[in-house]
Design a protein around this nucleic acid. Structure first.
Lengths: 336, 336
DNA sequence: CGTTGCTACTAAACCGGTTTAGTCAATCAT
DNA sequence: ATGATTGACTAAACCGGTTTAGTAGCAACG
């Protein structure tokens, strides 16, 4: 229709607007006429038609357990930063840990012609003919690039902090068995403890259970810890949510935080800073992990030759010291 | 290619797979062969090609200020619930309140052939030839359906709660001037106060400023409130974030919450429940607002005849009573 | 004077399906 | 026997662009 108006063929218009090299021979005057008309009619070529011909959709699929959760939301925020800048959009699908959906969505997204896939905190063992980047979800499939936190360093940061404050009896809340981070993180803790010279006492370890995203789970295990186990002056929780629950339990048992027990969380979710006391925690650079993932997937798209092998990109955690930790009290610990 | 394999034409395959009425005359046996082959090869028609021909993309555009914020994330969660169920996907774009992006993204999304648009907490004054639903963003453009909270009821819930607890001197933190909710909410408060018989004292009103999503903003104005104004036994904040900041400020000034000052928040964000004390707040059914928006936009798509007029769908708030409110102390209030 | 080489375009194929308008053979009605 | 139906498909148009392979006209060249 632009073509009709200009008395040119659609081919010419297309060549000019896309500044194709073939259009080199077209005189500037004609080009200007085309551009002017395009601007005048606010012409925007049909994206679908163009996609069909060029086989490019400028879309990325993003797989998350649940968009509305803080963790995924932060990562998605970082992904978006990067993608929109490069003219890409993204389709989000939340699988809620349902295995059938984890299987199905990647295929559906692929059918929707996404050019790449980012899987956040999602187990991955498929093979799909487009670049895949996983954010903290151990993907064993080959060709998948992983963005992971340096868990060894994270454990080190937390334990060194506690150790320097004088804490020697430290309790731990391990993550749920199904969480992909649980194992690596625990290994990191063991390594760091050994290096620092901190003894990990089996009677001071509890493990989260259940999939609830509420502090309740941390609350429960902390009560168990208090009821039946040894004394401790500090607690390193698996995440902020469970740390918040733990603080509640500690308070109820008459212990003050941080005076009697120091508590360190993990993640640095939004509300960590808003807690009372402000939660000392190990921050994962979630937003950055998201934008790194996006960058990586875009790079793989533009240079398909490169990295067909699995890669691993590690990001560094950061200790955020707030008010839930303080020097271990010098008096001999009582029952805690 | 499926066609080749079957010795049939693409047309036939298409007709069968889409169970078009034209395929009525095709014998069941042939149909079965087609279905079997499709299953066998896990055939998935190219979505782009199909979109081009049918002019359907099964995509919705979602416009938010920022995905990673709790508010938008919750709404988007609700939107997703509904959309994915109906076979739709969605493209998200965050405008960060930048006016140029608020202008541009709807157009870009439209060019990307989304079939409808949901604008969350976003000013809207464009005209776009697809259904638009706004979630708590006063859209004056016609044809836009609005999903809004019943702010009158919300104010009533909060004020009645405080009034029944015996509070007569209530302070208020108003929202930022740019927030679309500020005005309606304040009107609701005034109406409810009058109905209940609660006096609103001008010296007990402060207003948030700045776009920071941190409790800092609430903290600041509360200190101002404490420094220069009259006494009060309760505080109704514009949102949970500012309520959290307010609690901090109150504590620092030596007041206990709730014993000296009861605090009511708004929204019921995730961390509201995790606060210490747990925050009493007015919950907006954000997830439900999202799924309502999605439902509405899908309905408009399927019955384009209907509602070309602006509509308004109101959802009801819910008072969540936790630990930040209690009966007003009977002793005469001191300086607060 | 025929050929080559530009210049300024355009016809037509193509992307991969969907859909309309037929086609062709067999069956049915007259 | 003949025209009208029906059953089982398919050719080809179509969606709206992009891209390849040309073409027509003119100038320069050998």
């Amino acid at each position: 229709m632009l073509a009709d108006y200009l008395g040119l063929s659609p081919a010419t218009v297309s060549l000019v607007l896309n500044s194709s090299p073939v259009a080199d021979s077209i005189p500037q005057e004609t080009k200007d006429r085309v551009f002017a008309a395009a601007r005048h009619f606010d012409y925007r070529p049909n994206f679908v038609a163009r996609s069909l011909r060029t086989q490019r959709s400028f879309m990325i699929g993003v797989l998350v357990p649940e968009v509305s959760e803080g963790y995924a939301a932060s990562v998605v925020g970082g992904i978006e930063d990067q993608l929109l800048q490069e003219g890409y959009f993204y389709l989000v699908a939340s699988h809620r840990h349902r295995l059938d959906l984890i299987e199905e969505y990647p295929r559906v997204l692929y059918q929707r012609s996404v050019e790449g896939l980012i899987a956040v905190d999602t187990p991955w063992n498929q093979q799909i003919p487009i670049p895949v980047v996983a954010v903290s979800g151990r993907g064993q499939a080959q060709g998948v690039t992983n963005i992971v936190l340096d868990h060894d360093r994270a454990a080190e940061l937390a334990l060194e902090h506690l150790f320097h404050l004088g804490h020697r009896r430290v309790a731990f809340i391990k993550g749920q068995a199904f969480s992909s981070d649980t194992e690596v993180r625990w290994n990191g803790i063991c390594k760091a403890a050994k290096r620092i010279g901190l003894e990990i006492r089996p009677e001071l370890i509890v493990q989260l259970e259940g999939d609830s995203p509420s502090p309740e789970v941390g609350y429960g295990v902390t009560h168990k810890l208090l009821a039946s186990r040894g004394t401790f002056t500090a607690l390193f929780a698996f995440n902020d949510i469970s740390a918040i629950g733990a603080i509640r339990a500690l308070r109820e048992s008459g212990r003050r935080v941080p005076e009697d027990v120091s508590v360190v969380g993990f993640d640095d979710i939004q509300s960590a800073a808003f807690q009372n006391p402000g939660l000392t925690t190990v921050r994962q650079p979630l937003r950055r992990m998201g934008s790194l993932a996006a960058e990586t997937v875009l790079r793989s798209i533009s240079s398909p030759a490169a990295d067909r092998v699995s890669r691993r990109i590690t990001v560094e955690p950061e200790l955020v010291v707030r008010e839930s930790t303080c020097p271990a009290s010098t008096r001999k610990p009582g029952r805690a």
